[in-house]
Design a protein around this nucleic acid. Structure first.
Lengths: 210, 210
DNA sequence: GTAAGAACTGAACTGTTATTCAATCATTAT
DNA sequence: ATAATGATTGAATAACAGTTCAGTTCTTAC
């Protein structure tokens, strides 16, 4: 008989699949999902358009996988920062800084993950992503409310959502065109200011300031 | 000699033009700019597709005018609230409440004005809109910083942008599907909480709380 | 009523992208 | 080398939205 799938071929296919994923992620990082057409993805991956469909059911399927991978990385980083030992307000400050620093380093990717309109399949992933964030922040907010460093009469879900919105708008919103030409010092100042603003929003009155 | 433009015809044309604008605004309010195709606008306005182009250079032109009108209304309302007499923090609280209340009443319109991706021509209008808001809020923030009710060591531009982002995300972001089925009491609670959160973010330490 | 000119109409045109599939190429086991 | 089978290709297709324009209808002034 004849052709059988060998480990060699399986590895090669896997490599191509991975290359397509990487290419797509790069395109999304530089111009959002809107900039990642199938033709562009194929060209930059060095394969034909049809081959993309050999590895992914559809463009939405490919996008969903890229989205999932990118957000898993982000959520993991923020989760790690939150789970360092120490008071809840310090943990939150550290996590917000991680979030802000990563957003300002890759503003287009941040926008693509947070705000760019996407088709329903990717939007489903976004819902999970938001819930993951909400749960992480909420956990720490609730802990801080118990510990007394955050004001106890707040809605932690609301505070969590508003905090993400505040950072996103401050860093990838109106200031975003400037973000490219932002030197390290200016970026640090911006991140410091926005983190302090967010912390003060949830902090208990009378707690230590700044 | 023959046809001349009469007041009657001019009025009729103006009425049609206005009808197209109103229809578009309604479509944007219910589904964002993405839901307002030229075909749909024409149908709902009771005119042919071609007639839309008789009154507007292009779809972008029509959108820009709808955007401009909608935002002028919003900015005026917020400006009125800010310019009531009284301490800066009370003025800011009142203005944020107006902003939030209007956003929660028309979440899709709020999203379309604040965050929906639009073509460059509309985006230019959005820049003006953001600047108008930024100037308004900044003015009051600076006044409050001088008066001592807002913390003096903050970047008012950043605080202003972050505040808009916080409210937008909290009200039209993850909570937005719920906004439709929100009763008056729940909506009031949500608005109250988010306004307090934003105020606390900018307030001077040691000032009166709640 | 009629003719000039404007307004209106919507089918056709254009440009853009996702998706398909018949033909071609590559890999394997004999 | 060859046959069998899967992998790859990219031109063709399909679907969709903004825009155009030749033909039709309407309004006006006489």
């Amino acid at each position: 008989m004849a052709y059988r799938e060998t480990p060699r071929m399986r590895a090669r296919k896997e490599a191509t699949r991975q290359r397509i994923l990487d290419t797509t992620q790069q395109l999304v990082a530089s111009g959002g999902f809107g900039a990642a057409s199938v033709a562009r993805v194929a060209e930059e991956s060095g394969v034909a358009i049809g081959s993309v469909y050999r590895h992914f059911e559809s463009k939405s399927d490919l996008f969903a996988e890229v989205f999932r991978h990118a957000t898993e990385v982000e959520v993991r980083r923020v989760g790690e920062a939150l789970n360092t030992t120490g008071p809840a307000d310090e943990a939150l400050a550290k996590a917000l800084e991680v979030f802000a620093r990563r957003a300002i380093r890759s503003p287009t990717m941040a926008w693509a993950l947070i705000a760019e309109p996407v088709d329903p399949m990717v939007d489903e992933e976004r819902l999970r992503y938001r819930q993951a964030y909400a749960e992480l922040f909420e956990q720490t907010l609730v802990r801080g409310m118990r510990e007394g460093c955050f004001r106890p009469d707040q809605n932690p879900k609301l505070s969590s959502a508003a905090t993400v919105g505040a950072i996103a708008e401050a860093l990838v919103g109106p200031l975003s065109p400037a973000a490219d030409g932002l030197d390290r010092e200016k970026a640090d100042q911006l991140i410091h200011d926005v983190v302090r603003l967010c912390l003060q929003a949830v902090r208990a009155p009378g707690g230590q300031q700044q």
